[in-house]
Simulated scan of single mutants.
Amino acid sequence: MATTSSGGEAAHATADREIVISRVIGAPRELVFEAFTGVRHLSRWWGPEGFTTTTRSFEFRVGGQWDFVMHGPDGTDYQEWITWREIVAPERIALLHGESRDDPNAFESWLTFEPAGAQTRIVMHTVFRTRELRDEAVEKYHAIEGGEQTLRNLAEYVAQIAERSAGGGPASAGGTTTGHESGQQSGQEGTVR
């Protein structure tokens, strides 16, 4: 996938340490942003397929933190920590993500929520401290596939919310996904630069 950036030199300086994943989601960006930033929503869709999330603490504000555990399908627990560095609702979020507050290998991410008619294009940029850390995330932890699955889970969860609010009948708000994707939810892209 080819990506463009208005960052000029800054984009070139991080290109070998970056992962970019995007997806078009069939819902307005205010709803997508709310699902991404509300703790009551996050535990229902966050993470790759088969993962669940337990939040220990959450404060969505600049400087606030999300301390949580991701539970893998094999029973492995992954300690996670995020601090929010920038919030421009409903357009952009920047964050630092690691295993703990003092994680020397924490990575930076920023997400943009772009209106696309009645849909939203979400673009997730992740920049690691070194190329080796990025390569390890891709090869050992399957960061691209996991990121794509996470955005697919978000798309499916938001579709359930939209269906309920439109009066389309009861929809489960559970955190599991069916693997079914509608045409409105397709359009994911992932790349390592």
Rank of each mutant, 00 (worst) to 15 (best):
I87A: 08
G63P: 02
V192I: 10
E9C: 07
Q119W: 13
D135R: 06
W45T: 08
S43Q: 14
F68P: 00
I87P: 07
G8S: 06
E9Q: 09
M124W: 14
R131D: 10
R29H: 08
R131I: 05
E156R: 12
A116D: 14
V192W: 05
F107C: 07
R101H: 15
I122T: 13
I161V: 15
E9R: 01
V138A: 05
I21T: 12
V192N: 01
I19W: 09
A35L: 06
R61C: 14
S22G: 13
Y78I: 01
N153T: 05
S165P: 01
Q149N: 05
R193E: 15
S22E: 15
H180N: 12
S182V: 10
M1P: 05
E99A: 11
R121Q: 14
G75M: 11
A2Q: 07
A11Y: 13
T53W: 05
I21A: 02
V138G: 00
Y141M: 15
L96S: 12
V62G: 03
G183W: 11
T53R: 05
T14Q: 07
W81Y: 13
T150F: 07
Q79P: 09
H97C: 06
L154W: 10
W46M: 10
R129G: 10
K140D: 10
L133Y: 00
S22A: 14
R134D: 03
F33Q: 02
A2P: 12
T191V: 13
E189R: 09
I21C: 09
I93K: 00
G174F: 02
A10P: 02
A116Y: 08
E108P: 02
A155N: 01
V69R: 11
Q184F: 11
P73K: 13
G75T: 13
A118H: 13
R44A: 10
E136A: 11
V192S: 11
F60G: 01
A94R: 12
V127C: 01
F107Q: 02
E99S: 10
E132H: 06
I19G: 00
V32E: 03
G175I: 04
T3V: 15
A118D: 13
P28N: 00
M1G: 01
W84F: 15
T54C: 09
T120D: 02
T76G: 04
T178P: 01
D135G: 06
Q184C: 03
N105P: 00
H180D: 13
T112G: 08
E114F: 00
A15V: 09
T112I: 06
G187H: 12
S6M: 12
F128A: 11
F33P: 01
I19S: 02
L111A: 09
A171N: 08
R134S: 01
R92L: 05
Y78M: 08
G8D: 04
P48V: 03
F107N: 07
R131P: 07
Q185G: 12
L96V: 08
L95G: 02
F128T: 05
T55P: 00
H71E: 14
